[in-house]
């Protein structure tokens, strides 16, 4: 099997969700998608390993799910939006996950985000035409 390469593959710290990821992690993403339904969430929580088996989620994929290793899941081809369906209701917000990806605390991650808005109103005023700028 020969997968074509893409120039987005060298963006650091980034796993662009494309056909290659989607193909390889199809059972995993199908499991994550099932969390749209309350009964499926309950069934998973009762026995995560059995739930993986039901969806054919095996090997490293299963290991990542059972360990809630979100970076591992992402690298293995989980889609971030589908993964959020597993993470958020189980106490890992998207910002918690972002912090985990970088090996920092959520507070540190949030502080880095807030710093992006430093001097915002002045920057908008300089450009002109913005509300409150």
């Amino acid at each position: 099997m020969t997968w074509t390469t893409h120039d987005y593959e060298n963006i650091p710290g980034t796993y662009v969700f494309d056909g290659k990821h989607s193909y390889g992690a199809y059972p995993l993403n199908k499991l994550l998608f099932s969390f749209n339904t309350e009964e499926c969430r309950t069934e998973f929580d009762a026995d995560p390993a059995a739930y993986c088996d039901k969806f054919g989620v095996e090997g490293k994929y299963k290991e990542f799910v059972l360990k809630k290793d979100f970076l591992g899941m992402l690298r293995a081809g989980a889609n971030i939006y589908f993964m959020a369906k597993m993470a958020i209701p189980r106490g890992t917000s998207v910002q918690d996950a972002g912090a985990q990806f970088q090996g920092i605390t959520t507070k540190e991650f949030q502080a880095k985000l807030l710093a992006k808005g430093d001097g915002l109103v002045e920057r908008l005023a300089k450009r002109g035409g913005y509300w409150n700028g």
């Binding site: 963006i11 650091p12 710290g13 980034t14 796993y15 970076l71 992402l74 971030i80 959020a84 998207v94 996950a97 972002g98 990806f101 970088q102 991650f109 880095k112 985000l113 992006k116 808005g117 915002l120 920057r123 908008l124 450009r127």
Partner: peptide, 21 residues
């Protein structure tokens, strides 16, 4: 915005403003 990977948390204000204008 970027939610995923080690580059999560990226925001590029200058690019955003250029895009809006």
């Amino acid at each position: 915005h970027q939610l995923q990977g080690e580059r999560a948390g990226l925001i590029d204000v200058e690019f955003d403003l250029e895009c809006m204008e």
